[in-house]
């Protein structure tokens, strides 16, 4: 008698009895267990939320640079300009971002806001021109593009507000200049060379 033709590689070699007794994977769970799970889950969620509350809520550098104006456009439209040199890895820049954003929102129509990333080789000319040695570096330019002053590093929001206000009113000098707070050195910029077009790492 010809036996049945071949089946696939996962064919069972030996006759196996049909497996009658099955263990229930999800037995009746007692309410105690549900309670335990709920308690565990909520404590874990609480821990997670606690940890997250120590993170930065609010504006990120990405949001700031998305709201900023292109540099050439800012120099050409006859309004004073605030130029911030920043980098993605700069902690202080990240901390100051919410303050800068608020000031920006307030003076948007009178003063241009420009964000220049120091890792980008496009702004090397400006880095050289403005003598940027630490970031965040805020350069205050009048309506003709001339530098009225600069501030480097962490500065109180009040100083920033007063400087921008002075720019907006068209004054020739800003009240707080040449102030150096906590900053990151611009030497540690991460210049990415041009990637090979075929590289897919």
């Amino acid at each position: 008698v010809e036996s049945a033709s071949e089946a696939g590689p996962c064919e069972e070699k030996v006759q196996a009895a049909s497996d009658a007794t099955q263990n229930n994977l999800f037995p009746e769970f007692p309410t105690k267990d549900i309670n335990r799970r709920v308690a565990l889950g909520s404590s874990v969620a609480a821990v997670g939320l606690f940890l997250s509350s120590r993170l930065d809520f609010g504006v990120s550098l990405k949001d700031l640079s998305a709201a900023a104006m292109p540099y050439e456009q800012a120099l050409a439209n006859g309004k004073p300009t605030l130029v911030e040199f920043y980098a993605d890895w700069c902690e202080v820049c990240r901390e100051l971002a919410p303050d800068v954003y608020k000031v920006e929102q307030q003076y948007m129509d009178r003063v241009n806001f420009v964000m220049l990333n120091v890792d980008n080789t496009k702004w090397e000319q400006e880095l050289d021109e403005f003598g940027v040695e630490g970031i965040p570096h805020f350069a205050f330019l009048d309506r003709n593009g001339n530098e009225e002053g600069n501030v480097v590093g962490r500065l109180p929001k009040q100083y920033l507000l007063e400087n921008v206000d002075a720019l907006a009113r068209g004054e020739t000098s800003i009240p707080h200049s040449r102030i150096v707070g906590q900053f990151s050195s611009s030497e540690s910029r991460k210049v990415h060379g041009v990637v090979d077009p075929r590289s897919h790492d």
Binding site: A87, T121, V194, P197
Partner: peptide, 13 residues
């Protein structure tokens, strides 16, 4: 020409 990201990396050739 090349397109760049804000941080200076090339986005496309």
């Amino acid at each position: 020409y090349m397109d760049y990201y804000d941080s200076g990396e090339v986005s496309q050739f």
